[in-house]
Write a protein that binds this DNA or RNA. Structure first.
Lengths: 226, 226
DNA sequence: TCTATTCTTTAAGGTATTATGAAAAAAGTG
DNA sequence: CACTTTTTTCATAATACCTTAAAGAATAGA
């Protein structure tokens, strides 16, 4: 799966590329609207991530231009909430949009959803779950189950446990977790992670004080034990 | 891989150079911000390590200047925690930063990570392990295995055994170990190393009193026998 | 064998890190 | 705008870890 990412913030593009490549996607990048149109023509990617605010040609115009010859799925990134208004009113052929700052997990989720939808003619919607021990996640419904019993997790709690389960047995520092699960430009109190871990243990572990899955690696960080 | 290290503390630069060269990197050095910018232009290194506090031109300015013509990965070294605030905005084009004093292992790890990320177009995250005899390390999870059985190591224990295994058959004095694995400017009791070695033997050797891997070189230091 | 030196082991105190409780701040909702 | 829920922050308690010190064991050299 080839994904085109176009934004004039080089650092952001770099971060997105890194994350998507880790996910197994092929990533090509550009930095303005004209380039976006050209790259869609030349590379025919499977999906496009496009910033609204860009030099030369803005994302909305680029989007419309692309639609003249392709119906590749397009995700727009908007910086200001004001931009949303424009998006809502006009039909530029956008398939989805994301307001900055967003977290990488969210972008990944949307990309997965769009790609699945695009190729849904052949693919069956397989029950999308992730289970380790007595804990399992329903990724579509964003529900968690403990011993098969539904447990109510908040959005962030789900993000945290999903990330840890996807990368079970791998230790992540609080900093690393903040960087990937929280919004990419925000650095909040490091202890926030501890509190989320505690809530998850309360909700998912049989004995929260002696966790069997949501583990602490002393002096390093947290991990989900498989 | 060519790495540029710029810091006005000659001793620190020397230490870093020594360590990176041991790792197989080509190292060039400078001592102030102006020199940093010049050397990036002239030598086009693959990565830059830059101190924030320097004569002539500070690291942040140098970083921004370099970004005008190059997107080489840059790691900033900051002495005071106050400096961190400035970095937090990171519009300087920094890719990573490290607070002094740091230990060499951490710097190496960050360099490895950045280089991998920079050239990640080819590489995929492979199971990252290190095995000698019946002892193996899972570098991602920071777990150790003895005869394939998980053994719980503390953060420092893991650092020590990882270092020794990476440099198997090579003897290190206690001083050398303190310098590389502990923070570089700190000199704690020399016996601390002994205690860590003992714990490692307890956890990893079949017969801790007759070690087969974690060896003593009498009158010199310790090494991991391959 | 004896002595000096170096290494191993033990145990305890201090330090740094994590867990917990509670409450403020922020984000949704109707 | 009031109300609920979620997220973040902060303070304190609990605890794992690291370091230190000191005594005992092993080694090398005389």
């Amino acid at each position: 799966m080839k994904i085109l990412v176009v934004d004039d913030e080089a650092l952001l593009v770099k971060g997105i590329r890194f994350n998507l490549q880790n996910e197994g996607y092929e990533v090509i990048t550009g930095s303005d609207g004209l380039e976006a149109v050209r790259l869609v023509q030349e590379e025919s990617p499977d999906l496009v991530v496009l910033d609204v605010m860009m030099p030369n040609m803005d994302g909305l115009t680029a989007c419309a231009r692309i639609r003249e010859f392709s119906d590749v799925p397009i995700i727009l990134l908007t910086a200001k909430v004001d931009d949303m208004d424009k998006l809502m009113g006009f039909d530029h052929g956008t398939d989805d949009y994301l307001t900055k700052p967003f977290n990488i997990l969210e972008l990944k989720a949307r990309i997965r959803a769009l790609l699945r939808r695009a190729g849904s003619s052949e693919k069956k919607a397989s029950a999308n779950t992730l289970s380790i021990g007595h804990i399992s996640l329903d990724l579509d419904g964003r529900n968690a189950y403990k011993h098969g019993v539904l447990v109510d997790l908040t959005a962030k709690e789900f993000d945290v446990v999903e990330f840890l389960m996807r990368n079970a047995n791998r230790v992540y520092s609080r900093e690393a977790l903040l960087d990937t699960i929280w919004t990419y430009e925000y650095r909040s109190d490091i202890r926030t992670v501890d509190v989320h871990i505690r809530r998850l243990r309360e909700k998912l572990e049989d004995a929260p004080a002696q966790p069997k899955y949501i583990m602490t690696k002393w002096g390093v960080g947290y991990y989900f034990r498989k």
